[in-house]
Design a protein around this nucleic acid. Structure first.
Lengths: 266, 266
DNA sequence: AGATATTTGTTCGTATGTATT
DNA sequence: TAATACATACGAACAAATATC
């Protein structure tokens, strides 16, 4: 057995758990294990690494959090190779950006640059089924909302519209990034406050753009699709920023209450 | 981003470890714990959650992998709140994109859209010290490389140049994304093969653009900075793609060896 | 520098939960 | 239903790391 062990003993003394994590990772790449394949069972790993149950379990937990394996109980159970889901990737990335205090402007600076590319890419690959899906989503917000709950759902559906477009891009990292930005907008508390405002995004204009986009995609016109998205993003950003400014004015009024009525629910 | 994970009990029976992970996460946000603050010690967590040592340790391991805490031994030791490092965030994201088979074109499609924005953003904030750093990096590749090793270092330095520019952007997510794309180029094996080619990127043109960029930044001209980067990215992409095509031709020759000499080292 | 106290890291034995047959 | 094969969880003891005196 030839062991490739880059873990020398001069460093702060690596922990047994981390050694096992790396060893299993090497095992995965060396054996070319694919999603669905099973790792050796807990017991075998224990004897193979001469480690205790607890240590091996900690290593498997680390791999599980990284989205590399999932563990099942019962006969035939064990640790199976997984593909990390998009959702988990986004959650992990959110943990990183959590402390960074992103602003609406930060996010839209990226969306303005990327969504047009995404639309162009999708225009080249989307099929009639996809176009139908998009048309159906539009029907969710093609009318005035009856109450706050419907208004909220309409805002989410608008973001989902762009998420569906992303599905038809052939650029995985572009699609992921755009969808992640959409999710950030859903999660940002400041954005959520904005969405509760009477008219978060000029609906008529937004729907117009999205209908134009569908038409451009249907006639396979990537350049037009990109141009439409560029204009839509700029308008959406301006709308969001002006509403954000209005919210801040309201906030200042609350700080210096003249005869203001408090109205803000969590 | 205050997310309270709805932990229902009708689902497949949540594992004790995951319950503790979520409980600790809630503990962190409720107590407003900041990086450097310490969690209760292992012993206290064990009694607080009425769980065993192994279970609590698995939970802490999960939090550690997510970059939320780091654990230290010794007196006064324990689990301390951490900020996830950029490097860890990139590694986790790489795990997700690993299976996606990204191409050079995929990556440059994003770089073309984002690096100009980044340059414009940095132009507004960079200081003389940063400009000096950039000028120093250029000296690493302002001359013909003597051997393959130096050629490699020059290619890495060229990417680092853009990484330093990113440091001076005030848009955290834009900076992160650009630096991540740079790292992907360093890691992609196909890109690495390209970098070993005699002239991976037209050096003269690249350096010209980068000197122009420094000048534009020094006179605080974001629009010019963006324009320069747009041109630079387009040229770099064309160069990479043509070299990639050449490599593929070589590869095909090896598959159908006429009188080809094998020449490829790991 | 060395001894010591404190806290995590690892091991072992055992018992319980869960999915398959 | 019962038997089986696996992960999951518990508890006690011991080892290793590290701050403090």
């Amino acid at each position: 057995m030839n062991k490739i062990d880059p873990a020398f003993s001069d460093r702060p003394r690596r922990k047994r758990t981390d050694e096992i994590v790396d060893a299993i990772k090497r095992m995965i790449v060396e054996h070319g294990l694919a999603p669905g394949d099973r790792l050796p069972q807990e017991r075998e790993l224990i004897s193979q690494f001469a480690a205790s149950k607890g240590t091996v379990r900690e290593a498997l937990k680390a791999l599980e959090v990284q989205g590399l394996v999932s563990v099942r109980t019962g006969p035939g159970g064990g640790a199976f190779i997984e593909r990390m889901s998009e959702g988990r990737a986004m959650s992990l990335l959110s943990n990183f950006l959590f402390a960074k205090n992103l602003s609406i402007a930060n996010i839209y600076e990226m969306r303005k640059a990327l969504e047009p590319q995404l639309a162009a890419s999708a225009a080249a690959h989307i099929d009639e089924a996809g176009l139908t899906r998009l048309e159906h989503i539009i029907t969710i917000y093609d009318h005035e909302p009856a109450d706050a709950a419907e208004r909220w759902n309409q805002r989410m559906a608008e973001l989902d519209f762009h998420g569906v477009v992303a599905e038809y891009s052939d650029n995985p990292i572009l699609a992921f990034t755009c969808r992640f930005l959409q999710r950030l907008l859903k999660d940002l508390t400041i954005a959520q406050d904005i969405y509760l405002q009477p008219e978060p995004v000029s609906r008529a204009s937004g729907i117009g753009h999205q209908r134009d986009l569908i038409a451009a995609m249907r006639r396979r016109d990537p350049a037009a699709a990109a141009a439409i998205l560029a204009e839509h993003m700029t308008e959406a950003e301006n709308h969001m920023l002006s509403l954000q400014a209005q919210l801040q004015d309201k906030f200042l009024e609350e700080i210096h209450p003249s005869r203001t009525v408090r109205r803000r629910s969590s």
